[in-house]
């Protein structure tokens, strides 16, 4: 089992001009713990929204890497979005799913990935070009390379330990998160 904080820290280390969309719950906290950045967009709700938000961002910014970091619960809720990602096939979109096989914020109830569902296969069945499941440190190094530099769309499902990590809460104010993202990513100063 991989450690989610360590994996995300390595994924986002020295990130260049990468844009990040973090799904609700622990993936948000993991991205914040790796080092806050105005080009991180944290979803505090809107479950099922991380993958399609990343897709819209990737289509709008085709020359920049867009990294979605989300959990298995969020990804299962938007399973159809894998087919939309597969159909649009943006080369700059990568999706890192931190799969602890649990709904971590609600008491640790198991998700379907603990009971036979395979998110990498679901993404592949949706037409996503490059998909993988990652269980070991050696596989993680390859996966980070693919997520950061491989031709997209990329999906990597990281099997991470179910234990919760220390609290690390990013800003929650939606308009603030939106404005600072657009300011840092686009140089646009919204009124």
């Amino acid at each position: 089992m991989l450690n989610r904080r360590d994996a995300v820290r390595r994924l986002l280390d020295d990130r260049g001009d990468m844009l990040v969309v973090a799904g609700l719950g622990q993936p948000c906290f993991d991205c914040f713990a790796a080092g806050d950045d105005p080009r991180n967009f944290y979803l505090w709700g809107a479950m099922g929204g991380a993958v399609p938000t990343g897709l819209g961002l990737a289509l709008a910014q085709p020359d920049r890497r867009v990294m979605v970091v989300t959990g298995d619960g969020d990804a299962l809720m938007s399973a159809g979005a894998f087919a939309t990602v597969g159909a649009e096939a943006p080369e700059n979109l990568a999706i890192c799913i931190l799969d602890n096989e649990r709904y971590g914020e609600t008491g640790g109830q198991v998700t379907h990935t603990a009971r036979g569902a395979d998110l990498a296969l679901m993404a592949a069945a949706g037409g996503v070009r490059d998909t993988r499941t990652v269980r070991t440190e050696a596989e993680l190094a390859d996966a980070i390379g693919a997520l950061r530099n491989g031709a997209g769309p990329q999906v990597a499902v990281l099997k991470v330990a179910p234990e919760s990590e220390p609290g690390s809460l990013p800003p929650q104010d939606g308009p603030h998160l939106k404005r600072r993202f657009r300011s840092a990513a686009l140089g646009v100063e919204d009124k």
């Binding site: 399609p52 938000t53 990737a58 939309t84």
Partner: peptide, 26 residues
Amino acid sequence: LRAVSLTTEEEGVALLAGAWLGGAKG
């Protein structure tokens, strides 16, 4: 124009939020 066919309408709400973050209107 990029015409994006969705599997469900809620995808579109999130897609266009991402588009706006990236400076595109939808």
